[in-house]
Design a protein around this nucleic acid. Structure first.
Lengths: 215, 215
DNA sequence: ACTTGTTTTAAACATTTGTTTAATATAGTT
DNA sequence: AACTATATTAAACAAATGTTTAAAACAAGT
């Protein structure tokens, strides 16, 4: 019955290319259509395989999704942490983070909408509440902010607000592309250009506002 | 066969409470679960009616959805236009718009995610590409911006970028509530407070940046 | 060649889906 | 009261869904 489950737990799978194929296909399909927007068969077909194989390797559509989703979150928070844990100044961290985030999102434009969306669909899918928070906290970036605030280098503002300001201005422009194009006449190529110039505005605006230091 | 369609076209429906009940129920269900996240039967049940009635009044789930969605967009753009067409200064318009948008979104927190999401799901659902753009353009707010820019009162920035800055900072904080709560430990009541103080930051930041005029 | 354990497939299963049908109830008109 | 058009319902339909089963293909060891 649960042979493969046991094997997986014991780490005995030979990590076959099939499993990876399914995961890659599932990733692509889930990202663009969401959990409820696609079927198991669609994923199997995208991987060029039988439906039963999907459940053979991942037990259920739900389980497969959870794995993909949690890796998406990992990747997402990971890129944040990667920059925060450097020894740069806050302004540098902020600037570089926004730069990287815009570039990253240009390559994975479906990701933010996917995460926001699925977090809203199933509130329980918030995995390990504190796991990600701790990761970020361990970088010491919060202390760095509080220190800067006490020294008057940074404005008094809730740290959650800072996160919100950053994510809002990085992610929303990507998520809302189709919506923006439905209320304003902007062809695809031009939207990419818009994002580039928008990035510069976001950086300047946030740095100026948070640090009261003209660039 | 298409009796009711003919009646609707001819405006002969007595606008029964049943039709409204279905629409209200559909609105609530679609908003919170999206088109693919719910079934016709779920909508019927929420309205306390038979499934067949939903199709009797709206022909299909798709058609019902289109009606709801396009009204959501109307409402959304309408509130924008309402403020833009006043005789206020740009700074006042911006400030009031953000104030109202935050209040509006506090009452309809599912709306932005719903619109963004469904616009991404079916790119064809972008109804009447120019309709909304014209509505906004007719308010003359774009000319007002260009004038302010030529007078040096406002920074040089693409108007699409301005829209993006505003919507990003108003909508994302609401859309991402569940996501934020899964990476930071913020209870519900506190998140509402956070949004209030965040609103003030957004106003100050945007006014300062766009108009180079300290409040 | 036989056995054993793993991978893959086609087919089946029970539910759920959007939609339609055919019958019943309701109300208004003559 | 009978007729008619509308409103509502229960039941049915075909298609799609997530999942399981049972059999086949494959590989490795003996």
């Amino acid at each position: 019955m649960f042979k493969f489950a046991a094997r997986k737990i014991l780490g005995l799978t030979k990590d076959t290319t099939t499993e990876k194929k399914i995961k890659e296909a599932a990733k692509a399909v889930f990202y663009s259509k969401g959990f409820e927007g696609c079927s198991s068969r669609e994923i199997a077909q995208a991987a060029g395989l039988n439906v039963a194989l999907v459940n053979y390797y991942f037990r259920s559509k739900n389980k497969l999704f959870q794995e993909i989703f949690s890796e998406a979150l990992d990747e997402f928070v990971g890129s944040m942490v990667q920059i925060f844990q450097t020894e740069l100044s806050l302004i540098e961290k902020l600037t570089i983070f926004i730069e990287k985030e815009f570039d990253f999102l240009a390559r994975h434009p479906e990701l933010p909408n996917f995460i926001i969306n699925e977090t809203n669909r199933d509130e329980n899918c918030a995995i390990d509440e504190s796991k990600y928070f701790n990761k970020v906290q361990e970088t010491g970036v919060f202390e760095q902010m509080k220190l800067a605030q006490s020294k008057g280098e940074m404005i008094e503002i809730d740290i959650a607000s800072v996160i919100l300001l950053i994510l809002s201005n990085c992610q929303y422009p990507v998520m809302s592309k189709n919506f923006m194009q439905s209320i304003m006449p902007i062809p695809n190529e031009q939207y990419a250009l818009l994002l580039q110039s928008h990035k510069a505005h976001v950086i300047e605006m946030l740095v100026n506002y948070l640090f009261k230091t003209k660039i």
